Simulated assay, not measured.
Amino acid sequence: MRFSRFAAAAVALASSCSAWAQSGVTLYGVVDASIEYVSHVGAVPTAANGFNPGPAHDVVRLTSGGMSGSRWGIRGVEDLGGGTQAVFVLESGFNADTGTMQQTGRLFGRQAFVGIKNAQYGQLSLGRQYTSLFDSIVNFVPAYFATEYEPITLFTGANFREDNTIKYTGNFGAFTGVAHYSFGTGVALPQAVPTGFALGGAGEVPGQARRDSAWGASLAYTGGSLWAALAYDQFNPTISTPASTSSGTFRKATAALSYNLPWGRIMGGYRWGQNKTAAGATAVRDDFFWIGGIYQVTPAFTLTLEYDYDKVRNVFGNTSVANPWQLNLIADYSLSKRTDVYLSAAYAKHAGLMLDSASIAFANSLALGNSYVLGNGATSMVGIAAGVRHKF
């Protein structure tokens, strides 16, 4: 069974596993915008506001990227003979509501890489790319990492895209293996709580090869009705406090399953996470679970339900943090092969939507420019969005 959502995820990744039959360059993109209502919203905590989100308010706003992040891109291929090709992807994220660039103002912030691909031996690519964990797990998450409400940063880490990356992707029948190494991820997040720290840096640091480096690997099986995936990711970010600058070790390991049924798919999985400072102290330790499915009501209409739960064991020394969870429902109707309309709704408890919290330095709110931080006194958040998406 083919799903329009699955196809959208493939376009979003501009997948390095895609095959091109001849030389050429393709311009592509997505424009996605929605009107959104969100309850109990506070400000993103920073040192400037004393790490105080302030009072909770409801908000109605126009946002960019509900089902997919708005972007435009160019991808190309040149046949070199003997089953070998040169390939490249340049993909720029933008805000459809304001026309500004995303990914901290990068021109090609979503992807920017060049590589060599061989039909038998796989692809080797260099540049800004998705991590191995992201590549393998995206098709095992019911909402396919939809921009609105999906807890992607909690799931994969803020480093799901990394600068200065060398990556190998190999297809072997129903198996796909991916491995990557980043010499400097370019991920940087400010301090989010008084007891926390600023995270990451601009890229490679001379004389400090480990600092802000990252690596990972994954293996996915997508043959038959039952699919499975395993992935590991490690990020070694700069950790900056008033007293020192050091390199931490952030690790994540994931296992996922997906099963095809006559009416759709069900899927779920588990992600183990542990973030440590250079001294070995635990900054964050959690166990994240998800389950849900996609129901193909008609060829044009799909319903998606996803439940996410995070078992928080330690956040900056606090071992009694309430465990956040979220329920997300998406109704998507295709008007054509390129255009669809959707209604998305989510309820989060003990965190903001997307499970935004101090444990991930409120990275979702910072990246999107729209706060999903709980205001003072609030313990839950509701979001409802109606939007339109066009793919070209």
Score class of each variant (00 low, 15 high):
residue 5 R to F: 05
residue 5 R to M: 13
residue 10 A to V: 13
residue 17 C to H: 05
residue 23 S to Q: 01
residue 25 V to A: 11
residue 29 G to I: 12
residue 29 G to Y: 10
residue 29 G to C: 10
residue 31 V to Y: 02
residue 34 S to P: 02
residue 38 V to G: 02
residue 39 S to L: 04
residue 43 A to K: 14
residue 43 A to V: 07
residue 46 T to R: 05
residue 47 A to W: 04
residue 49 N to Y: 11
residue 57 H to P: 03
residue 87 V to H: 07
residue 87 V to Y: 01
residue 92 S to K: 09
residue 102 Q to K: 15
residue 104 T to V: 14
residue 106 R to L: 06
residue 110 R to W: 01
residue 114 V to I: 13
residue 115 G to Y: 09
residue 117 K to L: 01
residue 119 A to W: 02
residue 126 L to A: 12
residue 129 Q to D: 12
residue 133 L to G: 01
residue 136 S to C: 03
residue 137 I to L: 13
residue 147 T to K: 02
residue 154 L to D: 10
residue 156 T to F: 10
residue 162 E to H: 04
residue 166 I to E: 04
residue 172 F to I: 10
residue 176 T to W: 01
residue 182 S to A: 15
residue 190 P to I: 11
residue 197 F to G: 00
residue 202 A to W: 09
residue 202 A to D: 14
residue 203 G to Q: 06
residue 205 V to P: 04
residue 207 G to P: 13
residue 213 S to Q: 13
residue 219 L to M: 14
residue 221 Y to T: 11
residue 224 G to D: 12
residue 225 S to C: 01
residue 227 W to E: 11
residue 227 W to M: 07
residue 228 A to L: 06
residue 228 A to R: 05
residue 228 A to K: 02
residue 229 A to C: 08
residue 242 P to Y: 05
residue 245 T to D: 04
residue 248 G to H: 04
residue 258 S to P: 05
residue 265 R to M: 08
residue 266 I to T: 10
residue 277 T to K: 13
residue 284 V to M: 04
residue 284 V to L: 10
residue 285 R to M: 09
residue 285 R to K: 15
residue 285 R to W: 04
residue 288 F to P: 00
residue 291 I to M: 07
residue 292 G to E: 00
residue 292 G to P: 01
residue 293 G to C: 09
residue 294 I to V: 15
residue 296 Q to V: 08
residue 298 T to I: 14
residue 312 V to N: 01
residue 312 V to A: 01
residue 315 V to A: 03
residue 320 S to N: 14
residue 329 L to V: 13
residue 332 D to Y: 00
residue 335 L to G: 12
residue 337 K to T: 03
residue 338 R to V: 02
residue 350 H to D: 15
residue 352 G to C: 03
residue 353 L to P: 00
residue 355 L to D: 04
residue 366 L to M: 10
residue 368 L to A: 14
residue 370 N to E: 07
residue 371 S to Y: 07
residue 378 A to C: 09
residue 379 T to P: 07
residue 380 S to L: 05
residue 383 G to S: 12
residue 386 A to G: 14
residue 390 H to I: 07
